[in-house]
Amino acid sequence: MKSRPGGGRLATYAAVASGGFRRYATYRLATAAGVFTNSVFGCIICFTYLALWQERPDIGGWDAQDAVTFVWIGQSLLMTVALFGGGFSDELADRIRTGDIAVDLGRPVDLQGWRYAEDLGRSAFHLLGRGVAPTLVGALLFSLAWPANPLTWLAFLGSVTLAVTVSFAIRYLIGLGAFWVLDVRGFVVVIGFVQLFCSGMVLPLVVFPAGLETALRLLPFAALIQVPAEVLLEKSTGWGLLAALGSQLGWAVVLLGAGRALTRHATRRLVVQGG
């Protein structure tokens, strides 16, 4: 790729990211509705975990307060890491289906980088708009485990950014799937289920039977919810924290790389077919 002055390109990406933020920020009523729904779900799940921890007060090495805090972290990250999919990947698949993707690939801005910037903007909005308010509701109604060390917040922010990156890389791959499959919707639903389940969203991975837990931690999906939550809960500290962030970073690099390779492959195909 030809390199342009770095500052200029960064400014472009910053503008794209801020566009992604504003695109979602315009729907205030929808955001309020989403906050309400996240709060209701958060409360229901808290009661189910409290019941579970009452039966087994030390299940997975967590106490009930950890579990309840995990619920609100999950509700905050649900939209931030776009666990239900949607957003740009549907759009990407649509543009591939209609052939508009040729226009995108012809732009001087890198397709993946541009979509990534946009998605970072979106996720920043969802973290602030859809994450903070439900957590406040949770803090009001339940006793949450806040980090003892203020630096943990910084580590959490880093971990969330990496979670968004992994989630982006996965959704980018799904969107690209439209180059090979006519209708990616079925695929999206199945991946959605896998993500829901293997990220810890449906049930914290520590509650899973030991063998299953180990296996799920080897998959990239744990990086979406379970890993950032453990950072904020201070379950991953010291070397453990580095290992947690390192695993997220590793998946981000691998999946983004796969996305790049596939983009190049698809572009070549597009050029050959003259599409």
Binding site: R185, G186, V190, F193
Partner: peptide
């Protein structure tokens, strides 16, 4: 159709 229906069973 089959993929979407199965997806719903899973979800």
């Amino acid at each position: 159709f089959v993929a979407l229906a199965l997806g719903q069973v899973l979800t």
